[in-house]
Write a protein that binds this DNA or RNA. Sequence first.
DNA 1: GCAAGGTC
Length: 609
Amino acid sequence: MKVIIAEKPSVAREIAKVFGATTKKDGYMEGKGFTFTWAFGHLLQLAPPQEYGFYGWNVHNLPMLPAKFKLSIRKVKTKDGLVEDPGVRKQLNIIQALFDEATDIIVATDAGREGELIFRYIYYYLKCKKPFKRLWISSQTDEAIKEGFRNLKPGSDYDTLFNSAHCRSQSDWLVGMNATQALSISSGTRSVLSLGRVQTPTLAMICSRYLENKSFVPQLFYQVSIQVDKEGQVFRAVSTENFKSKEEAQVLIDQVEDVASGFPLGGHILAVEAKPRKEPPPLLHDLSSLQQEANKKNGFTADQTLNLLQNLYESKLVTYPRTGSRYIGDDVFAGIPALLEKFKDHETFGKQALFLTGVKLNKRSVNVKKVTDHHAVLPTGEKPYNLSADKQAIFDLVLGRTLEAFHQECIKEITKITVQSGAKYIASGTVISSAGWRAVFNEPDEEKKDEDNASLPKVKEGENLPVVDKALLEKQTKPKPLYNEASLLKALETAGKEIDDEELRYAMKDSGLGTPATRAAIIETLLKRDYILREKKNLVPTQTGLAVYEVVKDHKIAQAELTGNWEKRLEEIRSGASVTDFQEEIKTYTRSITQELLKAGAGLKLKPV
DNA sequence: GCAAGGTC
């Protein structure tokens, strides 16, 4: 019997379908001499400190450096505290029974570091010794699966990938567990002050932005605007220069040749520029972009959006949600016309879906090289029925974006008129001449500059027009805004882009901080720890959060560079570099951060609980 | 009581 193990049930089902295996059993499927089983993500985790004899939270245990890490079954929170997840225990038993019977094991967990780890932890935990082969595919279409099976790799080809994954896991444990206990113990409060490679830089980003925003001193500046009349249609033009003082602006205003000052035709048109600008459709959604959009449009938190999307996925209405790719491959693209066809009777989007069935589709989101483990989120084509308002909203964002992504460019006329009246003034305006993809949601352009006129009258160079009004504009410079969930998710994705060290920057370029699957959970952790809170749509630090930030802000653990450094080393391990060298460095770092925090925590400015 | 990672 050949046993195929996938990372999750949906993938096992897809593969079974390709093989024509349809018999459903408890925890697996079978047919044609094959058995298809699955995990539910990580079933096993590195065992907690007490399993190595580190009981309680005691300074004498620190730093905790287990000689050999153990694995333990994933836990769930219940009213009796943390207990083994019974569903996980059951699935492990099923996998064990299947592995015992197996002649061949084929590993079909996701093609990446964590996918490798998910399988290996199961394999080693079950003490399985049978050889295994690896299926390595990046898309789950029938053809990709078949091709992958013709091309199975020896399992040992991925030993170094497992090494890098295991190192990632152990390093996060060592640094996170020790730093958390060190700070919590030394703070003298009895609360949990957690720290980690991802959560602490995230907290630092929120805190530093908050402090920057609060200490920002707005600068006043002045501009002059004039109103110009073209045969009854009045438009506004603004001075090209900004002034620090009112007096300087007043000089300009006094020079305006307006009607009231005795100039019937004092607005001289120096130049008129009109150029079309093509705006390509947005890319399909990955999880993060969808969370950002849902936060902006519907006010949903990242966690809410993930849950709603997971729900739609379980109802088979959308494809795999925790994707980090905004692209699809050519194979999936081939199915798009049929997919669009299915929504041509849709209440809100039907008209646009119908339109797309008759035109050449935009292929901006089609790029197989940019599809990682999973492709962008798409509707499956199943019709939703009786969804809750929230789920419907998320489904509509997915469907709407799908229509947008394959739609035509939006074409805008951008007009710029330069007027001389004393000094130079500029009027700019944008008119959409062909909506293209913007017809889907038909919403106003997000950030229109406030100087913009919706549309400008037709004027010609050399014309002289009356200036009917003038005004002094008093404005203020603005601070960078506080983070909200949308901007924080974006910042986590792009974290590392500003690292000075080129190698570290490169190592982080595809990752950022955290992963699509974990970012919502990171935000929730910071909320649960009482480090941050939601204030309207913003995420702001609490007193506790700021106090922790003050203690750790100059340490590596608060910086995105730490992840960059790890990613660089982990990639080296994947291509064969020494595992023990890195592990020794991590131990050294663990010892030093633990010592530092044991001292620093005492200086924590916290009210006792 | 604690990390980050994956997923029902």
